[in-house]
Simulated scan of single mutants.
Amino acid sequence: MVISNYRYRNIFLHDRLAPVGTNPEVNTRMRSIGRRRWEAAHSPEITPTATHRYLDELDILLQSPETSTLAFQALLASLTRALEQVQLQLQQAHKAALSLAQRETLHEMNRVLQAVIQRMRQALTAPGQYLLQLNDTAASLAHEPSWWFALAEALEVIETTLQRTLSLVQGQPHRSLSRQLGAVLLRLLRRYQHHLLWEAREWIE
């Protein structure tokens, strides 16, 4: 899959050249992730302590007998492939990181996401594995991208995956396994998005 939407890239490049706060779309996005949390925490921590609970929740959910149903396997295959696209972009961002702190944080983000993907792959039955192959797409990644462009691409694919996850699970019954899986993944992805937006703001300023 070739990432062709440059919305984040253009927004932030414009902001890089203009005074902070003059771009209404950036300001809206910053408000959308919670101004009070932003100011209180300054930077959303990505640490083993902060992220291990996602794996614990996932382990519990994937023990359910409902995971073997064809409908859930289809959902699992689709979300697994989407998360693999996120991981590819996070790996690019890790390579392009400018500081040790950025590399350590992105390493932890990749580690947790790889563990999530591994658990989801292990829960796939034969039909699920087949559906996963049908969802296979070739990724085209830039060679040694700059930190800014790698960050923009990572934000873009996370946003796409958030929207895809929402569209797949929002019609499911409130307490269904599909809905609960979606909730766990949405919280993880939003945490990642929150952190990368903070990195973008730091770079702009």
Rank of each mutant, 00 (worst) to 15 (best):
I3E: 10
S4N: 03
Y6F: 13
R9A: 00
L13M: 13
R16C: 08
L17F: 06
G21C: 13
T22Q: 05
P24R: 14
P24T: 11
E25F: 10
V26E: 04
R31P: 00
S32C: 01
R37E: 05
A41F: 12
E45A: 11
A50I: 00
R53V: 01
L58V: 08
D59H: 11
L62C: 06
Q63H: 10
P65N: 01
E66W: 01
T67Q: 05
T67L: 05
L70Q: 13
L76R: 10
L76H: 06
L88T: 07
Q89A: 07
A97N: 04
L100N: 10
L100G: 03
L100T: 13
A101K: 15
Q102K: 06
T105P: 00
M109S: 13
V116S: 02
I117R: 03
M120V: 07
Q122F: 03
A123Q: 00
A126S: 14
A126C: 04
L132S: 12
Q133N: 04
T137Q: 13
A138K: 07
S140G: 00
L141K: 13
A142W: 03
A142R: 10
H143K: 02
E144F: 05
P145D: 04
S146L: 09
L151W: 01
E153D: 15
A154S: 15
V157G: 06
I158H: 08
I158M: 12
E159H: 11
T165N: 15
L168C: 11
S176R: 12
S178Q: 14
Q180R: 15
G182H: 10
G182D: 11
L185S: 02
H195W: 04
E202V: 07
